[in-house]
Design a binder for these strands. Structure first.
Lengths: 145, 145
DNA sequence: AATTTTTTGCAAATAATTTGCATTAATTCT
DNA sequence: AGAATTAATGCAAATTATTTGCAAAAAATT
C-alpha cells in the first residue's frame, strides 16, 4: 500500500481528530490520513506498513486505532478470517463488503436494507442498535480458473 | 456451562461425524455433543471448559473445531469483541444474533431476509455466497440500570 | 516560554493459537 | 476378531498477536 497522502487529507485528518477533542499528534494524523486515502479495511500490520517504515511503532497503531474506534472515527470489520480490519467510518456512506473466499479481494456494497430488522429489535427493548453484515463468496475471476 | 449431555445427543453427534466421513473419536463426539446440547456460540475456552476438565486438551478443541468448521458442522461467529465463537450449524435453522453491548447477553434472531442482496451479488459473478449478520445494542435490562 | 499532561517508542509481558512428536486410539485389512 | 496401518491426541514448546510499564518526547495548557 504505502502511498503518498495529499496534504489536504492531512488537514482533514487533523480536523477530524480535533473535532473529537483528542490531541493531535503526528502518528494520529498519519494513521487517519492513510485511512482517508485508502479504503481498506486494513489490519493493524497493514496500516503500520502502509505508513512507511519508521512512521511510528506498531504499538502506537494499536493504541490509535482503538482510540479512533471508541471515538467513532474508525470502524472495525470482520471479514471471515481471524484478522480484524479497520477502515475510516464515513457516516454518510454506510456500506458492507463482499469478500472472495479464494483471492480475498474485497468489494464495496452500498446496499443495506435492514432497518426493518433493527426496528424489530428496538421493539424488544434494545437501544443503540448497530449491525455487522458481510458477504462471502467466490468472485467471477476465481470462478474462471 | 459444563452440563451433562444425554446419550441421544452423543449418538446424533456420532452420526453427524460419520456422515462427513471423519473418524469418530471421543473428543470429537464430546465436543459436537456439547454444541448440540448448548446453543452458544462459544469460544474455544468455553467449549473446553464446558466438556469438564480432563475431557480433552485445549489444542484438541482447536483442531476439532477447525475440522468441523471445514466440514460445515460448525459455524464461526463474530460477536463484536475480538473473540471468535462457534456453534453447531443447523442447516434448517439459519439465524443471527443480537448481542447486548453491556452485559454481552446473546439472543437468537430467526429473521433474515437478505436473499435479495445475495441475488445481486450472484449477478456480479460471485458464487457460493454466504453472509455474516449480527446486531449489537443495549438490552432492555441494561437500559433500566 | 515554562509547566503540566498526554502520547510515544521500546522492550518486556501476556494471551492466543499453532506445531512437532511420541503415544494412543481408530480404521482397515486380512 | 486380531494384526497392521493410518490418523488423532496430549503435552510441551514455538509462534504470533496484543498489551503493558516506563522513561523520553511531544502536545496542550498556563
Amino acid at each position: 500500500m504505502k502511498t503518498t497522502v495529499p496534504k489536504k487529507l492531512f488537514q482533514k485528518a487533523e480536523k477530524l481528530i480535533k473535532d473529537k477533542s483528542l490531541s493531535v499528534t503526528e502518528p494520529r494524523k498519519n494513521i487517519l490520513a492513510f485511512l482517508l486515502k485508502n479504503h481498506g479495511p486494513f489490519s493493524m500490520e497493514e496500516i503500520h506498513d502502509g505508513l512507511g517504515k519508521n512512521a511510528c511503532d506498531l504499538a502506537t497503531v494499536y493504541r490509535c486505532i482503538v482510540l479512533f474506534e471508541n471515538s467513532n472515527l474508525v470502524e472495525r470489520r470482520y471479514l471471515g478470517d481471524e484478522i480484524l480490519r479497520y477502515e475510516y467510518k464515513d457516516m454518510d456512506h454506510h456500506h458492507h463488503h463482499i469478500v472472495c473466499r479464494i483471492c480475498k479481494s474485497v468489494s464495496k456494497m452500498k446496499y443495506c436494507f435492514i432497518s426493518e430488522i433493527e426496528q424489530m429489535i428496538r421493539d424488544k427493548g434494545y437501544s443503540d442498535i448497530t449491525h455487522s453484515l458481510e458477504f462471502f463468496g467466490v468472485c467471477a475471476k476465481c470462478n474462471q480458473k
